[in-house]
Structures are given as structure tokens and as C-alpha cells.
Amino acid sequence: MIKKAIGITLSFGVAVAMAIDGYIVFFKDQKTNTSTTSAETTSKKNATQTTSKSSSSSNSTDSNGQYKDGTYTGRSTSTQWGDVQVQITIKDGKLTAINVLKSPDTENKSVQINEQALPTYKSEAITAQSSKIQQISGATETYKGFTGSLQNALNQAEQ
């Protein structure tokens, strides 16, 4: 009787674990990873036990200069769209997967930044000769075009 109860509890526990794992692998990844590949499951499982520092490459290559199999997770970088990390999976010496891991609130964060830190501005029609303009924004000028450009004229006038 007790044995049976333990058995049921155990299999229930396993089922729950599977469900959570399934959620993490198939559902959550779709939200947080920007690219998913077949190597996803492997890379996810290895993520915790592999080195999380990208620059410690001294022990990541073998004697032939090839990268050892495994998952490499880069340092977290903060960008305007939130924190990001690149995760690379090497299998049989070949790059098999690149995942970009975003913090779960990345999407929301970018909207917030847009609203809160939005520069104040007003627009008005004005001539370029006005002393109120110091910069010109336009389709990227090349060197050749710069000589006759408004930006160049402004720079000269203000030296």
C-alpha cells in the first residue's frame, strides 16, 4: 500500500517535472529566444553547467584550435532594448546554434524607454541660416557630398 503510494507520488512528480520542462523548452523559449534551432534542448540543458564567460577561451579550444563541443554563453550586455546574451552551441567542432537570449521584459522595457526618456522637441519651419540650428539630419552624406552640405556650412560658420 505504502509502496503504491510512493510510486504514485513519484510518477506524479515526474509528470509535473516533465510538464515544467516542456513549458520551459517549448513555450518559454519561444518568448525569450529570438532564434530557435533543433539544438535548443541541448543548449538549454547545458547552459547551467558550461562556462558563462566568453573571454575564457583558453580552455574552450582543443589542440587543433577547434572549439570543444558544448554551449557557450556570452556575457550579458545591456542595450537600449534591455539585457541580451548570445548563446552558442558547438557540436562535432561545428557551430550548430546561435541563440539570442533576451530578458523577459525586453519588449516592454523598450516601450517604456520610448515614453519616459523621449526627448522634448518642437518643430517649426526655419531657414538653415538661422543661428538656432547646429546640426543637420539627412540621408547619410558621403565625403564628396559633405563639402557642399548644410552641415559643413554650419560647422564653418560656428568655428
Binding site: 523621449l118 526627448p119 522634448t120 518642437k122 518643430s123 538661422s130 547646429q134 546640426q135
Partner: peptide, 23 residues
């Protein structure tokens, strides 16, 4: 900062000016 937006059809003209402090 006053930033003039170039007229794509006449790069010697500006269409509008934005005034920006930080951005």
C-alpha cells in the same frame, strides 16, 4: 540643440527643425 531635417528633394533646404536636449 537645433536639428534641421534635410529636404530629400533639395539638400540645401530644410523641412523642419527639432529642438532636442537629450536623445
Amino acid at each position: 540643440w537645433g536639428i534641421g531635417i534635410e529636404n530629400p528633394n533639395d539638400t540645401q533646404q530644410i523641412l523642419t527643425t527639432y529642438y532636442i536636449q537629450d536623445g
